[in-house]
Simulated scan of single mutants.
Amino acid sequence: MSNSPAANLQSAAMGTGIGPVLDRFQDVERIAVLRGGGLGDLLFAYPALSALAAAYPDASITLLGLPLHAELLRHRPGPVAEVEVLPFASGVRPGPEDGTATANFFADMRSRHFDLAVQIHGGGRNSNPFLLKLGARHTVGTRTPDAVALERTLPYIYYQNEFLRSLEVVGLAGAAPVSLEPRLIVTPEETAAGLHLTGAGTRPLLVIHPGATDPRRRWPASSFAVVAARAARDGSDVVLVGDDGDAPLAAEIVRMAQAEAASEGARIRSLAGRLSLSELTGVLSVATVVVGNDSGPRHLAQAVGTPTVGIYWVGNVINAGALGRMLHRVHLAWTTQCVECGVDVTQVGWTAERCEHDDSHVQQIQPDAVYDDVRDLTATTPLLRGR
């Protein structure tokens, strides 16, 4: 059968996917998936990884990712057999490039004789040439008009939900969805660590992650503090999480929230900068509700099945918002222009340069509205989660 795009579109008949689910490739035993980026980027790709594992049950999946991905998936049951850390390479993994290390990486990857290589890392300008150097028999992925072609490609249009984009890509390789959102297995050790670190018990537990890589996605500390204080007054334990860079912000929120709660019984504290990724996974898994900006920990909370309330700029919710509303609530800021210079902030990447201003795009979201969802989820989701 021809592998031309037209022939494959006409012959797609392997079930329903996000886009066409084309014919599977034959004799696939080794699959490489290129997905760099942060924690959230990996979780966006997780439904696609699960779909590939179901479509090719006898194949071994190698994720080409970052050390953070390897740490999260190490010894964790799931679709990925191994993680190979990417070398520093323009548009794939930012950092000081080492020609020898890169050459050694490609030599090692070509020796694996991958049958299928999947690119779900951006529009393909840099990632498609990178993928082709693996020497795989078959290649699929996304492509902007100026990117080199793979064997089967999907047009890359920026504003698309990333879960669905990744599923559409693996549909090109005959993989139909088994889940629309990530489902990450939490180990018993992680659950035990989460319970120990938070003291979670009979009281509801609200976990707050106030950080975000892009400062424009950060809700003000004062708004997080209002939510934390109200939760504490209503009888919840409140724990702030984040990395080392988030620790000062988390400490400020704790101070503000304790002052606003004005109650000796208020239990508000920070674990920011003190948790390994495995411990963070455990803490998020035992939470009653997680509140956070559009960030990796919020996506991780969703992946382990914990209800979330997300703070989103409207453009980001298109790409990264949870699909359902039973467990995941979304609060949108409809900002379209920079508050400082007025530039159109909906234009991204190749269509416009980012202005230099870091003013929050989400500051107008009201704490009362966010807490209404926290209270509702706190009351209803223990029943839905079997707790």
Results as ranks from 00 to 15, higher is better:
1 M>V: 07
2 S>C: 13
11 S>V: 09
13 A>I: 12
16 T>P: 04
24 R>E: 02
27 D>A: 04
28 V>N: 00
43 L>M: 00
45 A>H: 04
46 Y>K: 01
51 A>H: 05
53 A>T: 00
57 P>A: 03
58 D>E: 03
62 T>N: 04
63 L>F: 01
76 R>D: 06
89 A>K: 04
89 A>C: 00
92 V>K: 09
94 P>E: 10
96 P>R: 06
97 E>F: 00
98 D>C: 11
103 A>M: 12
106 F>Q: 12
106 F>W: 12
108 D>Q: 15
109 M>I: 11
112 R>A: 08
113 H>S: 12
115 D>H: 12
121 H>T: 03
124 G>R: 06
138 H>S: 05
145 P>V: 06
149 A>L: 14
157 I>P: 06
159 Y>P: 08
164 L>S: 05
165 R>C: 11
173 A>Y: 03
178 V>R: 07
185 I>S: 09
185 I>M: 13
208 I>L: 09
209 H>Y: 01
209 H>D: 03
216 R>I: 05
219 W>C: 07
219 W>R: 15
220 P>D: 09
227 V>E: 10
230 R>C: 15
230 R>P: 06
236 S>D: 10
243 D>H: 08
244 D>F: 13
248 P>L: 09
252 E>C: 10
254 V>R: 06
269 R>N: 10
281 T>H: 10
285 S>V: 03
287 A>M: 10
296 G>H: 00
296 G>D: 01
298 R>T: 09
305 G>I: 04
306 T>M: 08
309 V>L: 09
314 V>N: 08
320 A>I: 00
320 A>F: 07
324 G>M: 14
331 H>K: 10
334 W>P: 11
344 D>N: 15
351 T>L: 12
351 T>S: 14
351 T>V: 11
357 H>I: 13
360 S>L: 14
363 Q>V: 15
365 I>L: 14
365 I>G: 07
367 P>L: 05
370 V>N: 05
371 Y>L: 14
